[in-house]
Design a protein around this nucleic acid. Sequence first.
DNA 1: CTAGTACCGTACGGTACAGTACGCTGCGCT
DNA 2: AGCGCAGCGTACTGTACCGTACGGTACTAG
Lengths: 228, 228
Amino acid sequence: MNVSSIQDEAALSERQIGVLAAVLRLLVETGDRLTMAAVARAASCSKETLYKWFGDRDGLLAATVRWQAARVRVGPVDRSRLDRERLAERLEEFAINWLSVISTDTSIALNRVAIGAAAKAGAAGPGTGAADPHSLGAIVLENGRFAMGRRLKPVLEAGREAGLLAFDDAEEAFRTFFGLVARDIHIRLLLGDRIVLDPERIRGEAARAVGQFLALHGADPQTGAAGA
Amino acid sequence: MNVSSIQDEAALSERQIGVLAAVLRLLVETGDRLTMAAVARAASCSKETLYKWFGDRDGLLAATVRWQAARVRVGPVDRSRLDRERLAERLEEFAINWLSVISTDTSIALNRVAIGAAAKAGAAGPGTGAADPHSLGAIVLENGRFAMGRRLKPVLEAGREAGLLAFDDAEEAFRTFFGLVARDIHIRLLLGDRIVLDPERIRGEAARAVGQFLALHGADPQTGAAGA
DNA sequence: CTAGTACCGTACGGTACAGTACGCTGCGCT
DNA sequence: AGCGCAGCGTACTGTACCGTACGGTACTAG
């Protein structure tokens, strides 16, 4: 199906990035009613060029998702001397960043497209084994949920080494943090519920989530961890 | 757009229910590649009848979602004398039920369709005000997330009155519970990640979530609440 | 037996859109 | 100048599918 002249790490020309930006804009504006003709028009290029570059409608979508996902990266882990204050700050920063990203129009649009793609391909799967790693859903997951896990876990482990956190499994601890941050927000946004998420509110949500997480996994002098 | 000969509370005939069941089956099997012709074939009825009954493709989808959502209801709130044991049991029951539902093929398919519909209608909205209450997304939200909230909040409040729980706002407490139960599971399922959720695992997740929730909002003799 | 009703099966019109073919333009190279 | 190439714009093909129309069938009422 997907010839993909664009390999994973192939550099994108300026022009091609323009195309992807146009795709993203259209995706946000018109939902998944995205047509190749509309992309060509919006990007001032010909359909034939689109097919030459991206091989396929799916290839175009995948390239867009990959490209957008690549720009989510944020500041590196500052591993230097953790005290409780610094750790909480770091976690809050993560939470704020995460909430800011998932409430973005582009993030919502991309997640919706990926979920739609998963719906199309969902039934054919053999049941055993993980989902096709080239699917949009896998890409979004990989660059969203899992990337965040990879970035946060070192922080958690540093916190544990510094005696500030207590947990058995960093993955589990991260998932709890994830749940405390997102709660019902993500699914509501995806389903079209209009939630006001101004920076104020995001900051508040982040502070609450971090407080709760520390209440669960903060290392009290006397208590062990409460995790499963 | 949607003429909907089927009003919200109109009784569905046996035959019509058969059609909706077929829609659901096809939705699970073929993703949102659902065509009216396929439905007619699967339900052994004519397309014309489909249009007469449901007015529209959207109407058919909405009827299916409503019908399926209506069967999520579960046991009533047993308000009789709460002790800590009983409360935890009740919460676990909720969590187990919730996880069981959202990991169902049909639930996933329906959520995906609703999210896809939200994607199509997403950009046209005026921005202010809530989403169209007739949209599939709104229906799913109303019968899923919000129905669960309405059912769980009395339990939480009963727990508070019995001195077992401490929180300021039942809605906020519920959202925390929601986050602790679902964590990253729902979004991963929607995006096509294959997670094994056997009853064993579900029970474990539920127990953990309840433990964490009680750690956050359980009324210790000495401590106030930690909620925001 | 005739008329009416409710429905099945299928054929048809119309439209939207993926993917392809082709002509034309401008640019670098020799 | 002549050649090749990258790419724009557009016209074209094929297909999928929504929504409708129509003929045929079973069943009921009078």
